[in-house]
Design a protein around this nucleic acid. Structure first.
Lengths: 359, 359
DNA sequence: CCGGTTTAGCAAACCGGTTTAGCGAACGGT
DNA sequence: ACCGTTCGCTAAACCGGTTTGCTAAACCGG
């Protein structure tokens, strides 16, 4: 494939060929002022004809920095990239790291051990998604002395954090359905183990649930356990769980899904059952991922600024690495907002009765 | 944010604390056999209480390898992650690198220069997407002496490559529509500059176009230039370009799109125009990305094994890094196949006439 | 009790660069 | 003609580990 014999050109090779010391070669690139213009030019020309590139690892070692930051997630990378939420988040992180000239390394469990992966990672700092204070990994990172920013985890003095108002968003979604007259709802939660819409599952799920519940309680709507079902945050997951609920005799007029993908699956299930959306069933998703543009009808959902979350996390981290004047806070809480599209509509009266009867 | 004062623990600190030489400390971790079990244990315990982690960069320098591979793409990372094709590809690469204990670094132009980014990348090898032999970057990589695998680029002795039978896939798509009786077609090509479904645009686009054309020529179907339109590989792009074609008076009964996203946009445009799919319009996409699960109706499309493309690329690269017995070939060509779903149907006769009239 | 082998651990070289300290030659001023 | 700078470059230390070569002590059998 590529050459084996052709050994890499080292700085000494260039020095010898140009008849100077290796220090001179280094100067020729990094502090040309310390050499006569003539010699500097000669050295550079020798270097190019030899095809010399300074060894990045050696350079890192002396520089004491890697100019790279890591994105850490506790799942296997295969799962991570399958998750559109993550892609969007990474997009945000990448935009700012790239602009600042930083590389991006993905850190995931190596042979099952995140700790090992962290120890081996050549990064200046870490953006962690889906871990919170409790996770032992966080302690591991701190021990190594790496700056980090936790996403979707509560603030903490020792590191930066970026959060989103999940609870408020959930309240908005629930309020929307309630104000449309819906009282018979199905909540689709996210299964922790698999592909997650949002990775720091437990907390995010709880916060959203709290939001839904607050509004429903206030509206006097009972929320029995059979009304809260769990599904992986996938198209298939949402489809299956809604079909099952239907078979179980539930006849909700509104669905609150914690993930867009599952919401899209519900749309599909409804179509299959001959239920018209939004006339007979209202569906609200969560996250406002790009996939909402492909659904029919377009999905009403809770928008959260996923890309900006990535941007903010990266910004806070880079700020911590190279503190400058007027540094913004280490902790950010970003807003969520309901985006009403066409998968929700007022409760039709004739159905309302049927529903009550069913209740 | 994180502590500044707390300097990183070095190997000398451990050595001093344990009352041994730094060589001994190194042995305690890497060749425990060279130390008495007792001392080795003592050293390790001192190391853990001190929180010592060997500096990964220093270790790389002596090891002569980074245990990391790079994914290179000529676009900005922001665009890269926005591209579901890429996510899927990365998923494949990540799966095998992770399994083999390798890290994954994303390489993209730094301040506009891919060369610079390559020179700085601490990787043992590179999987390159969207570049071909002509690109000067490829030459740059070779100069640095890094093994690489080119994806969607023709085979070449010096490096590995993974391709897909784009032309055959396109033929399959065209044949499908022709055999359903369609003779009035619209081809939606991919705009090179923006978010691309497939990144090595020029070649991929040409290969697919060649495939479409071969079948249509054979069937005696004229393909005037007004029948080939270009759009970014996005939902909006497909939507807009179809609406424009319609306004221009074109009344195709079948659409061959080189990207799934644009095909989904066509579905949306058709809905907007009151055209029923597939009864009045057949649409075929390309790539078979996950988004096809969200469209209504489900999209007929040309499947290509994107994830496997990533897997194969990574495998070939790792094989080149650590050659083992029975190494598989350096070049792979993967198959494509038509997946017929519900966005295509036989041409209805009454429309056939209207179409001919229109031609 | 002695020579030979093993064992345990150390000092130093090395990986490939950057950076500091310093040295000889050219230069300028008087 | 002499002294103090400045200029241009080099030697050596350093970054933080790993690895090689070696030595001193312990161990062994005869």
């Amino acid at each position: 494939m590529t050459e084996g014999p052709l050994a890499r050109i080292r700085i000494d090779d260039v020095a010898r060929e140009a008849g100077v010391s290796k220090a001179a070669v280094s100067f020729a690139f990094n502090s040309p002022g310390r050499l006569s213009e003539e010699t500097a030019a000669r050295i550079r020309s020798v270097a190019t004809t030899l095809g010399y590139r300074p060894h990045p690892v050696a350079r890192m070692l002396t520089a004491g920095s890697t100019a790279t930051i890591g994105i850490l997630s506790p799942q296997a990378l295969g799962q991570v990239f399958a998750n559109p939420f993550f892609s969007l988040f990474a997009e945000g992180v990448a935009t700012v790291t790239e602009e600042r000239g930083f590389g991006l390394l993905f850190i995931s469990p190596l042979h099952g051990s995140l700790e090992r992966a962290i120890a081996r990672a050549t990064v200046d700092g870490i953006v962690a998604l889906g871990v919170d204070e409790q996770h032992p990994e966080v302690e591991a990172i701190r021990r190594v002395g790496l700056p980090m920013v936790l996403v979707d985890a509560p603030a903490w003095p020792e590191h930066g954090s970026v959060e989103v108002d999940d609870e408020g968003g959930a309240r908005g979604a629930a309020r929307h359905l309630v104000s449309l007259g819906h009282r018979d709802l199905l909540i689709i939660s996210i299964e922790p183990a698999t592909h997650m819409s949002d990775v720091s599952s437990e907390n995010v799920v709880n916060r959203r649930l709290r939001g839904y519940r607050a509004v429903l309680d206030e509206a006097g709507i009972a929320l029995g356990p059979e009304r809260i079902v769990v599904a992986p945050a996938t198209f298939e997951g949402g489809e299956a769980v809604f079909l099952r609920a239907w078979e179980d005799g539930l006849r909700p007029t509104g669905v609150l899904s914690m993930s867009d993908a599952a919401a899209a699956g519900v749309l599909q299930a409804a179509r299959h059952l001959g239920i018209r959306v939004p006339e007979q069933l209202s569906v609200v998703g969560f996250d406002d991922l790009p996939l909402t543009r492909f659904t029919d009808p377009p999905l009403t959902t809770v928008h959260q600024p996923v890309r900006r979350k990535g941007e903010e996390a990266a910004r806070i981290l880079l700020e911590a690495l190279a503190p400058r004047a007027g540094r913004p806070g280490d902790h950010r809480i970003l807003e969520t907002r309901l985006v009403v599209r066409r998968s929700t509509a007022p409760l039709a009266d004739h159905r309302s009765e049927e529903v009550v009867a069913n209740d």
